[in-house]
Design a protein around this nucleic acid. Structure first.
Lengths: 221, 221
DNA sequence: CAAATTCAACTGGCATCTCAGTTCGATTTG
DNA sequence: CAAATCGAACTGAGATGCCAGTTGAATTTG
């Protein structure tokens, strides 16, 4: 959730986009709340122009809706939206796992295991914030996709992850047990991919993702 | 490729977006050519402001690249880009077909067959333009996705189709035989989905899509 | 007191202007 | 003649101001 180059060196429209999106994802700006270009511009210390570009981008990505002469509304994800995004993710990730299984080079196996080790430290550190846990979880899936080397899929997955970040945070809060369980599944999944057990790997990732749907039913959107 | 509400009633930024994108897709603006906000604004009869928003959107979608103090470049798809988009499509569509097979209601079967009939008329009309043939082909796939009822997947597929529209046009030009072959596969695919032959349906759609890769190798990017 | 009306304070949409940085050809200079 | 230099003509980035349309509370009117 953090982008590396110094925020201040970026164009103002990019700063505005990143900062507003972060406020939304962290729920410092809640769904269904209203914004205005002028207020945002003042708060961010810039003019309306770059704010307008940022808002337009957030609208295209589905975070807000802009009504002429009315204002900007932060959109709430409907239950249907969430289920759609989960199936979308399922389509992407099961493809990734299917085409990855049994194809990893030795070097790739090394990097994958290093990545798992990094996540292990976060998971086993009692100091880790919920943000850190969720980010590490998402980073693993994004990393798998990047192994496939398909920019479109990685980008699509990123977009999906950001959109469901707020949901993931709630799930991690409600079900703390997922901390360990999710990581254990990542380890198993990695092993199956490395060993080339394609069918088992695909089934595991599908269960891994579809389990989220079950959890959501129990948490009521 | 045509959006229904009267172009003139849309906000200027939307008109600019649609018109510029159409020029790019129709290759009236070729890849690697340079644009400028001011020139476009003059040509479209509006100020720079809405043009700037349109260009920003096209940049986010990957159609152009904007360099500060230099200009706007219409991006050419690399061969890798194309292959990535095709795999992306494969991930989406094989998921759609897999989850659709054997689940269609009678009403959905009716609409699907009506859709096939519409496409048949376009395919068998010798007057049909290449644009019409490509659009009808894409419309079938988009329709299948819409049967699944997942907005995210439909939207992702739309985006992918538009991005590969120029490539599809070249392929249809180089291989006129695809006119009939593609349509025949759509008929078979529909039958397999209706009859619930899931595995066969998935294999067919995967072949259908992967065949495009083979054709591209023979056409040299 | 309640209903209709007005109006001031907002909203985003767009045009315009200035600014700094790039580019490239004409000009100058060796 | 060739190389260095200068400058005019571009580029997008951003700030600002105006406009039309919406909204809601105060005010007027029955």
């Amino acid at each position: 959730m953090i982008s590396s180059p110094d925020l201040e060196t970026l164009p103002l429209r990019e700063q505005a986009y990143l900062r507003i999106k972060q406020l939304i994802l962290d729920e410092e700006i809640r769904a269904n709340s209203f914004l205005s270009e002028r207020t945002l511009a003042e708060q961010l210390g810039m003019s309306k122009t770059p704010v307008r570009l940022a808002i337009a981008r957030l609208e295209n990505e589905g975070y807000v809706r802009v009504s002429p002469q009315q204002g900007i509304v932060v959109l709430a994800l409907t239950f249907e939206d969430i289920l759609d995004f989960i199936d979308y993710r399922l389509a992407l990730e099961s493809f990734v796992v299917r085409s990855l299984a049994g194809t990893l080079s030795d070097a790739q196996v090394q990097v994958l295991q290093a990545h798992l080790e990094t996540q292990a430290q976060v998971v086993h550190d009692p100091q880790s914030t919920r943000q850190a846990l969720v980010s590490a979880d998402m980073a693993f899936h994004k990393f798998l996709a990047s192994l496939k080397g398909n920019r479109q899929i990685v980008q699509a997955l990123e977009r999906q992850q950001e959109m469901l970040y707020r949901i993931a945070m709630r799930i991690f809060q409600k079900y703390p047990g997922r901390r360990e369980q999710s990581f254990a599944e990542h380890q198993t999944l990695s092993r199956l991919i490395i060993e080339g057990q394609r069918q088992a790997a695909v089934e595991l990732i599908e269960q891994h993702i579809l389990r989220i749907k079950s959890l959501l039913v129990g948490s009521g959107g």
